[in-house]
Simulated scan of single mutants.
Amino acid sequence: MWLSISETLNSLGEGATKDWKGWSNYWVDYKAKLKRKVAALRTSQNRTGGGPADVNPLSDVEKKFLSLLGEGFGSGLPNTQVGPFPILTPPTTHVGPDDGQPQPPQPQNDQE
Rank of each mutant, 00 (worst) to 15 (best):
L66F: 07
R36T: 05
G72E: 10
K37E: 12
G74N: 09
S75E: 13
K63L: 15
K63C: 10
T43N: 12
S67C: 05
E62C: 10
L88M: 07
S24L: 09
T48Q: 05
T89I: 08
S67R: 12
D54V: 10
L68A: 00
F73R: 03
G72S: 13
G83C: 12
P78F: 05
Y30F: 12
W27Y: 10
F85K: 12
T89V: 09
L69W: 01
V95M: 07
K64G: 06
G74W: 01
Y30R: 15
S67M: 08
G74Q: 03
V95A: 05
N79R: 09
R42D: 12
I87C: 04
V61Q: 15
R47P: 01
D60W: 06
T93F: 12
K64D: 14
G50I: 00
D60T: 06
G51L: 02
D54G: 12
G51K: 03
F73G: 03
W23N: 06
A32T: 14
N46F: 00
T80C: 15
G74C: 05
Y26L: 09
G70R: 02
G74M: 05
N25G: 11
Y26W: 09
T89K: 04
P52D: 04
L66V: 05
D54P: 00
I87W: 04
P57S: 11
L88C: 04
L77A: 14
S24G: 07
P91K: 09
A53D: 14
L41W: 03
Q81I: 14
S24V: 00
K64S: 13
K63A: 06
V82N: 00
G74L: 09
K35D: 13
G70I: 06
A39C: 01
